[in-house]
Design a protein around this nucleic acid. Sequence first.
DNA 1: GCAGGGACGTAC
DNA 2: GACGTACGTCCCTGCA
Length: 468
Amino acid sequence: MPKFTDVKILDYVEKSNYRNQTFAEWIEADFAYQVATDLQIQAIEQAYYSKKRSELPLSKEFGSIVQMEHDLLNVLTDMEMLGVYVDKQELYELSSELQAKSRLLLAEMQDLVGETFNPLSAKQVQHILYDRMRIPTGKKIKTGFSVDSETLAEIAKSHAIAGMILDYRGYEKLRSTYCEWLIEHINPETHRIHTTYKQTFTSTGRLSSENPNLQNIPAGDGYAARIKSAFRPESADMQYVVADYSQVELRVLAMLSWDENLLQVFKNGEDIHTRTAKFLFPTYEKITSDQRRIAKSVNFGVIYGITGFGLSKMIKTSPKDATIYIDTFFAQYPKVRTYYDDIITKAKTTGYVETYYGRRRTIKGLNDANSMMRAAAEREAINMPVQGTAADIVKLAMIQLQKEIHAGNIPGQLIMQVHDELVLEVPNAWVPEAMQKLADVMEGILSIGGISLKVDVHSGKNWTEAKD
DNA sequence: GCAGGGACGTAC
DNA sequence: GACGTACGTCCCTGCA
């Protein structure tokens, strides 16, 4: 146990529904103490922390999680301080290129409809499409009719303008949210981006990242790949080594549920999505890419507590067929169903659910009068132990890695965490060794039911190259 | 002029 | 009738 306890961590671990309150709000809520001025807050903060740190008894049941978070705190500090280099020039160029694209497209669109309008304004897009062009309306939202990408993609089949609006939005998204926002956060002294990882925020135990968020950098081809490739070591003497857990949540689901079939898939080293596809489409000799896509959605959906309706939207089929897929999944992986049932039963009794390592989330609403509320609470309940255990695993790996790095056993620096992925900067000469050790540490974190974790490791001159 | 909500889109 | 967890941008409304 740590000699001193960071009370914010303790509070987070004990009350998983705790959100980012200000210190004042927190004191108020916990101690019914009205805080008036900034100076008072500071004084109380100091007094409270120093007193509580030495006197707080640590409840045993949270011991392992509290220890984990304390160890992780130092890892996160190192990562934030070191930061991530990005090629500023490259981002500038991308930004202007994207801006040129949008400008051109905007002129074309306004020519086409004979009216100036802002494609980023839902209200104005509604006016253009549904009032002026008389295109049949679809999904309703609070403020009128939806113009989201799903709707626009459908309209685009018959009206070019919809496709152009989608493209415009895409360019502007990349330009403003990624190029511009990242450039803004390059520290003038270090020339690196220093994100903030929020350690006491999410309800599952994941980290989050802000200012800027490095956990939602676009993946994919084209401009997205170019943004990602701007992330690279500053020096040509270094490379990125990227390791990500393969299907970690489904693997965790197998471990926690002890479903024989699910465990067997991983024991055999089979592709989980293809395997599920074979269960869903047993009469087919060979699984098509479309069938695998459907199975993939089912596999992911199960982790999120899918409904037939939700899945049907995802794979564009009828809710009836979608429900059949889900039922088939549970018929083929029967222990998953009983595992979920057990979680909900336990949550109703104790008021909380927990990860393999004992991280808890209190669940409210399981007995709500409203069935929608109940269903939502059930989805939260079944998702948290899986997502949370995966989060715990990555945290443990980070702690272990940092130990090895400090001991000189792994040559390199941990610079980013993206939920199931860790990114390191490594001197060229040591890349193969770092890759091996990284995989060993990460895969060694947990083994249950005869299966262990699997990690894919890649290296490259930048984040894009190191992804495959 | 500004704060906050809604809609949207990105990630895992 | 919205499948889990996040963050950031923009528009627009409501309020001074």
